[in-house]
């Protein structure tokens, strides 16, 4: 399961929440993050024993993935340390991404039958990552790089094996971008987006509050002025919430049609403090999305 979305939407918390819920439902699961492990330290403090945490270091991925491509670890070292190859690999795009995907494939291969949840890097890059195997295979045509790409496609990115969860925010522009992302994933990667998680959906204010504040602002003096300020704030929030809800409705509409009934859409509430993976796991469970 690849969890993706743009930066700052709460991807890490949702990915960790999904992994936690899977571990509790299925006994075992793996949560994988790329980088230094900061994500899990922040949101997964009370990790149950069934949930394994794996950190993949992209800067070491190429060296680790190169052995099968060049025939052996020794040959790989010879090639990668070459005066021309070293700067080439440092500067060439896609090489690192292939390396990281190969590490991801190894994690999946080492955990047969378990759900592995990948907390992917922010949007733009993650689509590039998922596409890179197919591009590499088509470009090379044959040879070890071709075989590596084909293996990645078959064991990691194939429909039926992989699923995609996209995390987004209830803001018009962000939602539009997210829908474009879903389309790209489906058309160019060939995977379908299983679930769209909309994070931080604002709560509705108590009914009548705005009408009461408007009525009260008719009164004279300081109280009337204060009520006017309240009415102003509530109407701003009301307008923002309406914008959000309209954008969400349109999303449900556009997205739901493709999904043939099941909208595949999960809404998570706004919280003014950082939720933990456990809180998110509970939200996801109660929304039926875990």
């Amino acid at each position: 399961m690849f969890v993706t979305g743009k930066g700052g939407v709460g991807k890490t918390t949702v990915a960790a929440g999904l992994a936690l819920a899977a571990a509790e439902a299925e006994g075992e699961a793996v949560y994988v993050e790329f980088g230094d492990g900061a994500g899990a330290r922040r949101v997964l403090r009370d990790r149950p024993s069934g949930l394994e945490h794996v950190v993949l270091d992209p800067s070491r991925a190429v060296a680790k993935a190169a052995a099968p491509v060049f025939g052996s670890a020794t040959l790989a070292k010879l090639a990668l340390d070459n005066f021309a190859m070293r700067p080439l690999i440092r500067a060439a795009p896609a090489v690192r991404e292939l390396g990281v995907l190969e590490l991801a494939r190894q994690v999946v291969a080492e955990h047969p039958g378990k759900r592995v949840v990948f907390d992917m890097p922010a949007t733009g890059h993650s689509v590039a990552w998922l596409k890179v195997a197919r591009q590499g295979r088509e470009l090379t045509g044959r040879g070890p790089v071709h075989d590596l790409c084909a293996k990645l496609e078959a064991e990691l990115i194939s429909p039926g094996r992989a699923s995609i969860v996209v995390v987004t925010l209830p803001e018009r522009l962000v939602l539009w971008e997210t829908l474009a992302l879903c389309e790209t994933v489906e058309k160019e990667v060939g995977l379908s987006v299983d679930r769209l998680v909309v994070n931080r959906v604002p709560h509705a204010p108590p009914e009548n509050a705005l009408a009461d504040a408007v009525a009260m602002s008719e009164s004279n003096g300081a109280v009337g002025e204060a009520a006017e300020k309240l009415a102003e704030l509530l109407s701003v929030r009301d307008a923002v919430r309406k914008q959000v809800m309209e954008a969400l409705d349109e999303t449900v509409h556009r997205y739901g049609e493709e999904k043939g009934g099941d909208s595949g859409l999960t809404l998570l509430p706004f919280s003014s403090t950082d939720p933990t993976a456990r809180t998110v796991a509970e939200w996801l469970r109660s929304a039926g999305a875990a």
Partner: peptide, 28 residues
């Protein structure tokens, strides 16, 4: 800071819905 919240809290003309909102605003 929103001085007007205090003004409304001290007033006796508020409705239950407004009281709810004021306390939610303070919490928030």
């Amino acid at each position: 800071e929103r001085d007007w919240i205090q003004v409304l809290e001290d007033s006796e003309q508020t409705t239950p819905a407004i009281d709810d909102v004021l306390s939610a605003l303070n919490d928030e």
